[in-house]
Design a protein around this nucleic acid. Structure first.
Lengths: 110, 110
DNA sequence: CTATATATATCGCTCATCGGCATATGCTGA
DNA sequence: TCAGCATATGCCGATGAGCGATATATATAG
């Protein structure tokens, strides 16, 4: 599970959204660091649909434009929760090790 | 930055280690969930060396076996710290959204 | 003498992501 | 009026990280 995919699941966790809205939501979540491309978006959505992690909520036509709304499925919710736990553990371990006082590496403490 | 790369930086954060020891350390860190293959390991190490995030601490011959020890460079330490911050934020956002009470999606709350 | 643990390294494949492109409509301002 | 931008979906080829397999070599255990 890579970052863009995780961001997609996160962006769907509180409410169903359509493709374009997901791009904007992800930009907001990431404080404009991640500008997801449509290529990434739609291939990721296809994959997540196939895996049963998301589902199509509805298809509409708004102002002559097709709009497909996606929702997080139960499996996707479970995946997101599990992934969050995993990452939390990894971050904790990284922090622990970063705070270790190392035995004079290149005279760091002189 | 993907998970295996992040685990490598984490495994080098408290002390320099050689390739084989890194595989074992990562297994320990991840509670045996991640068994890193040598293909992943050495290509990642090459990449990280080229990026200046790690450096070769020393080359030895122990019991007739070559041993190359890698150490985390300052740039790698900064990268790991930044990556940890980023992930921490992502996890927090995922948690926040997972805890949102949704307006009766498929009768979840009856 | 064979298997396992230690140890490094290369090669080719797959798959997610990425950038670019195509398509289409509605709105706004010059 | 018409150019450009926002909205909106989707495909395609390139890139690059990671993976499995394989090769090489020594020491030790059975």
């Amino acid at each position: 599970m890579q970052e863009p995919t995780l961001l997609l699941l996160t962006a769907l966790a509180d409410a169903p959204r359509h493709g374009y809205a997901l791009i904007e939501e992800i930009a907001t979540i990431s404080q404009d660091r991640v500008r997801m491309r449509t290529g990434t978006l739609y291939s990721a959505l296809d994959r997540l649909l196939q895996q049963g992690r998301i589902r199509i909520e509805r298809d509409e036509v708004i102002d002559g434009r097709a709009r497909r709304t996606y929702a997080l499925a139960d499996a996707g919710r479970a995946t997101l929760a599990a992934e969050a736990d995993r990452l939390r553990a990894m971050v904790a371990e990284a922090d622990r090790r970063l705070s270790v006082i190392r035995p004079m590496t290149r005279g760091a403490l002189a």
